[in-house]
């Protein structure tokens, strides 16, 4: 496919600022303001390296999600808030270092697992954040969980 031209940053920002802020509000609640600024500053730094304007929404949602994960870690570095839910849903033992555990997952699976169990996002929003279909988001989540489960058996 032909690459899509990168729009001026102003156009990109105006188009995505409200959905990105809503996404961060869902992930973080209070404190989404700082994460919002950090998200678009990171986007601005990386903007000259972009070669294709096709998946800009997925691109900026991924940045926002990473910023939110960093922010959550900063707030509660030891006990991440998604531990409990993951344990309940999948019978995994609570693990004080799940943040680090998911570090070793492929990026897409990691983001999917964290968004699903850390932030309780529905699959259509995870799909939007990953820039993939809802089915692909479901698959990434379940294969991420499977991988985590296998690792926890081995250790």
């Amino acid at each position: 496919m032909e690459p899509v031209r990168i729009p001026p940053f102003e156009t990109f920002y105006e188009e995505h600022k409200d959905p990105v802020f809503a996404h961060l509000r869902r992930l973080l609640g209070q404190g989404a303001e700082d994460a919002f600024q950090e998200t678009f500053l990171r986007a601005l730094r990386a903007y000259p390296e972009l070669r294709n304007g096709r998946h800009l929404r997925a691109w900026v949602f991924t940045i926002a999600t990473r910023v939110a994960i960093d922010e959550t870690r900063r707030r509660r570095p030891m006990a991440s808030p998604w531990l409990h839910e993951l344990a309940v849903e999948d019978g995994l033992p609570p693990h004080a270092e799940l943040g680090h555990l998911t570090d070793n997952l492929p990026p897409k699976e990691r983001a999917a697992v964290v968004l699903r169990y850390g932030f309780d996002l529905p699959y259509d929003e995870i799909a939007a954040a990953l820039g993939s279909s809802e089915d692909a988001a479901r698959q990434a989540t379940s294969s991420g969980v499977r991988r985590l489960r296998e690792r926890s058996k081995r250790s």
Binding site: F9, D18, F21, L41
Partner: peptide, 23 residues
Amino acid sequence: MTNVSAELDSRFRAAAAEEGLLD
């Protein structure tokens, strides 16, 4: 949907310039 406030919007626009990130 929660929209970005005018204050947050201008805060980001100021920070972008201050960090020297604008063409």
